[in-house]
């Protein structure tokens, strides 16, 4: 009896995951919202990832993208500084709001393989708290964000899982946009490979096979 229930749960879960994965259904175009404003969350992963993510954010019109959430790792002062630098430039032009969300690292450099799953689980719990629980029980913003921008490194996969927990239970979930880094010319990064099946929009900056002079048309940073 218990076994049958277990099998049924697994089968239904797999079916649910199949339904919510991008590509398993026809892409429905988003409804135009009024007013035409939206909230963007962006993960600043460190070093080069942060620089590129901040450059991407600088492309967006703060009138439309009027709430911005910068997700950074605990203690990543460089990413924090870059986010604040960008926001000082924005603040000079527009009235809009931003917030910083600090999450624990899923894995530190040189962390042992035994404690990594624990650290990743803790990181996922914190992400879920902000992406699922807070919006569910808050009176203000009922959603975390409309769009979540990811560009690596591997840790950004935790945020991806948190989004899929929302999708699984049918809660509002941000649209995942993954932008592969400018550094990857011929192959995808590990984070790119991990996130690819889950991203609603997956963008690379270099075409695979094309004449050299055509390539620059695809740079986003």
């Amino acid at each position: 009896m218990f076994f049958a229930f277990f099998v049924l749960t697994v089968v239904l879960s797999v079916f649910r995951l199949y339904i919510i994965l991008p590509g398993s259904r026809k892409r429905s175009s988003h409804v135009v919202r009024t007013p035409r404003t939206y909230t963007i969350a962006v993960y600043l992963g460190s070093g080069g990832h942060t620089s590129e993510a901040v450059t991407l954010m600088s492309s967006l019109d703060p009138n439309k993208c009027n709430r911005r959430i910068y997700v950074i790792n605990d203690g990543d002062d460089l990413s924090l500084r870059k986010a604040l630098e960008l926001e000082t430039k924005v603040a000079k032009q527009e009235k809009s709001s931003y917030s910083i969300l600090s999450i624990p690292r899923a894995r530190r450099v040189h962390q042992s393989l035994i404690t990594t799953p624990l650290a990743a689980l803790y990181s996922l719990m914190v992400c879920s708290y902000h992406l699922t629980l807070l919006p569910l029980f808050s009176h203000g913003h009922r959603t975390f964000a409309d769009i979540l921008i990811l560009n690596g490194p591997g840790t950004c996969f935790i945020l991806c899982i948190a989004v899929y927990i929302n999708k699984f239970f049918g809660f509002h979930a941000p649209y995942i946009v993954f932008v592969e880094t400018f550094a990857r010319v011929n192959s995808l990064s590990l984070s790119g490979k991990l996130v690819r099946p889950f991203a609603d929009r997956f963008v690379t900056q270099w075409p695979d096979i094309q004449a050299v002079q055509e390539r620059s048309k695809h740079w986003l940073v």
Partner: peptide, 19 residues
């Protein structure tokens, strides 16, 4: 080197939002 062009990424986000 080509200068930074933010309109490309802005366009992707506008598409995603259905604008």
């Amino acid at each position: 080197f080509p200068p930074f062009d933010g309109s490309r990424f802005a366009r992707i986000i506008d598409e995603v939002m259905g604008f």
